[in-house]
Computed example of a mutant assay.
Amino acid sequence: MEYHLSHAMILEGPDPEANLALAEKLAQQAVCTAGGRRPCGVCRDCVKAAGGSHPDIAVYGGKGGSRSFHVEEVRQIRDSAAVMPNEAQAKVYILDGADHMTEQAQNALLKVLEEPPSYVIFLLTCGAASSLLPTVRSRAQIFRVQKEDNPQTEESEAFLLAESMAKAVPSAREYDLVSKTGTLTKDKELFRAVLKELALIFRDACALAAGGESQVTASQAAGYLAQRLTRKKLMALLEAVLEAQAMLERNVNQTLLAAWMCAKLK
């Protein structure tokens, strides 16, 4: 297989969000069609994966409580796995909160873990691999997901928020963007940092739309926007953010500025 991922991996760690984030990144890597480093973040499959709409990536969750991941779901997964991928070279199943699977569900999963189709990848997230049956653990590689001592630095928080806001721009619902600006009205430094990240994202999206290369290599939003918006619209977004930066430095009311910016970006 060209994507060099094990057919089954258990991602264990104390932070469920970090576990899921890594699983999603690995899933994106599996479906990426770029010839170089994967995931590239800009190919059609990466863009769909980032937007949660790739037909060959399925996420099943068992976070409703202890033993809330039932055998019926695993049977659905097993039946689906027998069908070839729709678009990508791989078909990825993320079992988020796999430690909530019933024993019956885990036993039902064993068959496909033992003899999986060559194109199928299973990514199981959990707090501790020891909560899974030994027979399940023996059929998968186990990776420990470390929780950062200080994961939410201002820089990373600003980048993640800017990525989320940028991806909400093409949405038909204005609320999808407005709902992400609440913290900006109370924290000027964060607002400033987010505007800086947005400017980089929109600038990269313009470059990608023109056939160039991305400079913000960690950004998935730039490729996502380049696939959905015209160069004219992307340039207007960049100009709006640059104007918002100037307004913030002139001490314009942050609540009013956030509302103005959302209107300009839609």
Score class of each variant (00 low, 15 high):
165 M>T: 04
21 A>N: 03
188 K>T: 06
11 L>S: 08
41 G>C: 10
256 L>P: 00
191 F>L: 04
148 E>R: 10
102 T>H: 11
245 Q>I: 04
263 A>K: 14
61 G>H: 05
181 T>A: 15
25 K>Q: 15
50 A>Q: 05
229 L>K: 13
130 S>F: 01
95 L>Q: 04
12 E>F: 10
30 A>R: 15
200 L>Y: 13
154 E>H: 00
211 G>A: 00
240 A>D: 05
53 S>N: 13
103 E>G: 10
141 Q>M: 15
91 K>L: 13
252 V>L: 06
215 Q>I: 08
96 D>I: 06
40 C>W: 11
161 L>S: 02
130 S>N: 03
185 T>S: 13
170 P>M: 07
255 T>V: 03
190 L>F: 11
127 G>L: 08
159 F>H: 08
149 D>M: 11
204 D>M: 10
182 G>C: 01
142 I>L: 12
120 V>W: 07
3 Y>D: 07
158 A>D: 14
152 Q>K: 06
263 A>G: 11
86 N>K: 12
16 P>D: 11
84 M>P: 00
10 I>P: 02
135 T>F: 03
43 C>D: 11
70 H>Q: 15
240 A>L: 07
242 L>I: 00
174 E>T: 15
168 A>T: 07
17 E>D: 14
171 S>C: 05
144 R>L: 11
250 R>Y: 04
247 M>Q: 11
239 E>G: 01
62 G>L: 05
144 R>V: 09
190 L>Y: 10
48 K>S: 07
93 Y>E: 01
238 L>F: 13
250 R>H: 09
222 A>E: 07
86 N>I: 12
44 R>I: 05
85 P>K: 06
34 A>G: 14
252 V>A: 08
114 E>C: 05
82 A>R: 14
245 Q>R: 14
